[in-house]
Structures are given as C-alpha cells and as structure tokens.
Write a protein that binds this DNA or RNA. Sequence first.
RNA 1: GGCGCCAUAGCCAAGUGGUAAGGCAAAGGUCUGCAAAACCUUUAUUCCCCAGUUCGAGUCUGGGUGGCGCCUCCA
Length: 464
Amino acid sequence: MLTIYNTKTRKKEAFVPLREGRVSMYACGPTVYDFFHIGNARAFTVFDTVRRYLAYRGYQVTMVQNFTDIDDKMIRRANAEGITVQDLAERFIAEYKTDAAALGIAPADIHPRATHHIPEMIALIERLLDKGVAYVAEDGVYFSVEDYPAYGQLSGRNLSDMEAGARIDVDEKKKNPMDFALWKMEKPGEPAWDAPWGRGRPGWHIECSAMSMKYLGETIDIHTGATDLIFPHHENEMAQSEAATGCTFVRYWVHNGFINIDNVKMSKSEGNFFTVRDIVGQYNPEAVRLFLLSAHYRSPINFTRELVQSATAALQRLHNARDTYQSLAASAPERPLSPADEAFMAALPKAREAFVTAMDDDFNTADALGAVYEFVREANRYLPAAPKACAKAALALLGELCSVLGLFYRQQSDIPQEVLDMAEARQLARKARDFAEADRLRAAIAAAGFALEDTPQGPKLKKA
RNA sequence: GGCGCCAUAGCCAAGUGGUAAGGCAAAGGUCUGCAAAACCUUUAUUCCCCAGUUCGAGUCUGGGUGGCGCCUCCA
C-alpha cells in the first residue's frame, strides 16, 4: 500500500486517489527568467520520480507543470536585457527543456504558461470577489485573510502568530498585512492585461490555482513543490482555491527538502549558486540524479563534489551491471533451467517486492536503491554461470527498476570507427601475445576518451 | 518571538519496540598477460548526551547539547 506524507496533516497517509486508477498531479514549475539551479533540479526530480512511480504502480497519471512567465523577476530581467518579457520566457522555457532532459525529467503532460491563462485567473478572482473574500484596493485586488477562517491551515500557523512576525510593506493598501495580491494594477512599462477592476497583471499564487483547476479540476490528488513554497505560496493557493470552490483543492501536499552547498544554504550572495547548466559541464547529469535520489526527498541534502563523485561511482556500478547482463543475454548458453537457476529466477520477484515496499513508503528512494544494489550483487554473482534466460530476466528487472527511478535514460554515445579499429587491432596483438602493442593501443583508446575492458564476452568499450 | 525539522561508521544513508540495509572510500584475497570490471573477506557490541517507560529502545517520553528550515513573490 502506497503511503504519502501529507504536509497538510503532517502524517503519512494511505494514498487513495480521487478517481480510482487515476492520479492528477500539479508541480510548481520554474519562473523562466534564468537557467534553473540545482535546488530546482531536486524539486523537479522529486516530482518526476513520484510520477514515474505512480505510473509504475498502474495509475494513469496526468501531470501539469506550469511556467511562471510574468512576475517582477521576469520584468526586471527583460528590461535589463532589452528584450520583451515574452522573448525572455521563450528563451528560458527552451533552456528549461534542455536541462530537464539532461536530468531525465520527462516533460509534463501539459506545461501551461501563466500569460496564456489570464482570463481564467480573472474569472477566479471574480469568484473570490463575489464570495466576499477579496477586495479591490488602489494598487490591486487582494485576498482578505480575515474573511477566510481556515487561513493558515496548510502551514500550521494562525493569523495572530503571523502578524506578530510580519514584515510588511507600508505602502501597500491592504486591510490586513497578511492579505496577498491576486491582481496587481498596471505600473508604467510593465506588461498589463485588461480586467474588470483595472489593467494589470496577476499575482503569483493565483496563476497556479487557475491553471491547476483548468486542467485538473477543482480537486487534485497531488501538488508538489519545495518546502519553502508551503508558506506563503501554497497556503495562499489553497486559501484562494478552496474559498472559491468550497471543496478540497489538493488531497496530498508533497514537499521536498532543500539542498545546501558544502553545508551552506545556496544563494547568489554566498557565491555558491549553481545552475544545472553549470553542473552538467562538470558532472554526469545522470549521476547528479542518482545523488538527488540517494536520500529521502524530505531530508535536506548537501551538494558537494565528493558526494557527486560517490554517486558517479555508484552509477557506474549500475551501468556495468547492465552492460554485463546485456552481453550475457546475448552470449550465455540456452539450456533448461537447473534448480539453482530456478532459485535465481524466484528471487527476482522478491527483489522487485523489496523495491516496491521501499517506494510505497513515501517514495523512499534511498531504501529502494538499496534493494537495487542488493539485487545487482546477487545477479553479478550468479549470472556468469547461468543460462541465457536468467541473464535476460535480470536485465529486464534492472532496467525496470532503474527506469522507475528515472535512471538509464542516456543514450549510449557512438563509438568512432577509429576507436573500434584500434580495439580490433589490440585483439590481434593480444592473440599474438604482443602485450606491449596491446597496451599501447589501449592507451591510445584511452587518449581518445574511451575506456576498454576485457570481459569474458570480449573487449568492452565505453566512454570514459 | 511563532511554527517545524534533523543528529546512525572515514563520507553519504535506510531503518515498522525484537537485537544496526545499502552506496562511496579504504585494506586483504580470487579471477585476468596486465589493467578494468566482478565476486569474497574486513571496517558501528552500537545509533549526540542524560534520565524515564518497557522483558526489550537507534526507534517511544521528558530534559539537555549541536545543526537546519520557514515566518521576505527563495525550489
């Protein structure tokens, strides 16, 4: 049974979707004003893994991830570059796709953009005005937290606590300092859309509510994001959505922990700010993904060179296993299964079960990886003497489990003909017992960027 | 000040009150022309400290200590 830790109740709960066999998911996407950073990457990797696992468990998953393409940062950056907000958005949506693909993050079913959904947002704001939980002020339309008693439910705060610590902009024309903007009235030089109460642009929170409702309905199963979004973003989304519809907005709120860099919070001012674009130049992005999955998604993790290198070595172990099973699946003898073979085959479903049990426990990828490594060790030990059917079954299981975690997505790079020629020449030299020449050729292959290993199935080439 | 989280080996990390998974690193061995990979062996009598509950505590309770997050349109 799948259980999910729900931020709203602060407990692990049995997962029961609204509609049997289907899951609706909404993930807060990037504000497309720049390349996304390693912290974003964790949030995206988490929802991608959740999605993959739900699909693996047989659910038909519909996932929406928005692009926030209008806000202060967008406007500032577009002005700085002397381009339109729209051009900026186009550029970084494309860059998002490049970096997400590098990390094995599959595209959502729908990637709505905030600026393409202004009418939906206006309609939602009107509903809130009609219900008396929002009001029009001089500089915008605000949600009135005092008129919505459930405010604070998600983050576990109450209004008086929040007001005590609130730092507020005195210029804003709000009734209560905790009121938040649904709509911001037009300022000179900013993009603006017509609305019944005046030209302007939407607030951040209303975007997600409107797009989530449009594509997934008034109640969705899972909404993901990093912990910092719990307050105010998700609190506000929930308040405005539930105030408008009168029904539950999100059944399971899922929040991932933060990444520190060398034990320090990542920030531009600390000079430890890394975009994924920076990182994929230095590390194998698939290893970065494995690193991100090596701890539970709710724990904070520490990004260091040493830990990514450790993940790189672990990933190599999985790739080596796959390559070995692949060649054994091609070259191992075909014969009837012996009792030992049968025992090996019988252990495969048990390995899968261990993996599923781990993932069922609030997507415990660290524990699930433990199950994968244990299976790999057993298969590595048994397969060299096993028939083809065992190798095929092990290869299939390894591929199955790793793809649930979003690993094994990278294409094998093509090996240049000259490298293949050198490998062949080396085999001839080895047959002739000219090991000096064989070693020289292996060094030349290494210089060309490829590692050559001799295996019982013959020499194996891979990119270094 | 309010709300909340965390502490397990050299590093990372999982852990349902029943006797400490797994990965990386390190050391020794097997195999191999050598290397690599792979496998085997070794590496926490103990889970930050102190009390308590219990037949039994890494796990529950209380109190310390240390670290961290949110309360800023930061993922």
